[in-house]
Amino acid sequence: MTPRHHLDEVTIVGYSAGALPTALAVVAAAHLGICQNCRESLRNADAIGGLLLAQQQSSTMPSTVAREAMLAQLATTQQDEPRQHHDHLRNNDPDALPSPLHPYFGSTFSALRWRMVAPGVHRIRATHVTDGNLMLLRIGPGKSVPMHSHQGNELTMILRGSYDDTLGHFSPGDVADLDCDITHQPITSPGSPCICVAATDAPLRFDGWVARMLQPLIKL
């Protein structure tokens, strides 16, 4: 699995700093687990953050000692790639969910208990996430999500199936990292449902009046 759509650099820096809402951080961690490209960007962000922290901590130290401390911090950060991002890659079970999702949805696809929210659309919400909205979505083949934009940020990772929108084709492992400047209408590919994990930090903004009327019921 080689993703073609990746996390935005701002998201990676926020993840490195521990500044993302829980919902967004969970999806970011799931993508980092399968994406070498984004893990490399995370290592760079961690290294920069480590250097800045070391610089602050050593502001009262002699310049030679401060420089050595910064170099040691950089070397440690580059060598210690966070294992939690790729531990679940060792599990080749096609029924297994990515390990960052286990505390919120369980460990397997087969154990999921879906709730229908619209014809062809099923959802499972992570009810114990208080900062942001985290959910699994299963959308039937050939279905279109209503045209919408975003009042905040949306982070969606494809787990099974695929969809297309104005940003391209999204298949397993790909992540859509969207903000309030993006308006789109995903259309799932024929053949099999599209299953994704999605996180938002604010409600979506639907264009159509029917979708806006239903929004309080489906809580998107």
Rank of each mutant, 00 (worst) to 15 (best):
P103K: 09
P98M: 12
A30W: 04
A198G: 09
I124P: 02
A69T: 14
D207G: 09
M70C: 12
D181M: 12
T108Y: 10
V175N: 03
D165A: 01
Q79F: 11
T108L: 06
L112C: 01
L167C: 08
E154R: 04
P203N: 07
T77F: 01
P172T: 06
R67Q: 15
H122D: 11
T77M: 07
V129A: 00
P100I: 05
L159D: 01
G173M: 00
D131N: 15
G106E: 00
K219C: 09
S192I: 14
G152C: 07
P186R: 02
L217C: 11
R83H: 14
S41F: 12
D95T: 09
V121T: 09
N37D: 15
T183Y: 05
Q57C: 14
P21F: 03
Q36M: 15
L97Y: 01
S59A: 15
P98A: 12
V10L: 12
V175L: 00
G161I: 00
T183C: 09
I218W: 09
A69Q: 10
L204T: 08
C194L: 04
Q55E: 14
V145H: 05
D207C: 11
R123M: 12
L178H: 03
G168L: 00
S189W: 06
T130W: 11
H122N: 10
A17L: 12
L7G: 04
G140N: 07
F206R: 02
R67C: 11
H102L: 05
Q55W: 09
D80H: 11
L217D: 07
G14A: 14
S63D: 15
E9I: 15
R115Q: 15
A23D: 05
P141Y: 00
P141W: 00
H86V: 14
A54F: 02
Q73V: 13
I158N: 02
A23C: 04
P186K: 01
S58M: 05
A45E: 02
H128G: 06
C196A: 14
I158T: 04
T166K: 10
P21K: 01
D80G: 10
L7A: 01
Q57Y: 09
T108E: 05
T11M: 02
A47I: 03
A118V: 02
P186E: 04
S16K: 00
A96G: 11
H150Y: 09
S58P: 08
S99R: 10
I182Y: 05
L136I: 06
V27K: 00
H150W: 07
P3V: 07
D8L: 14
A66G: 10
L159R: 02
R125V: 15
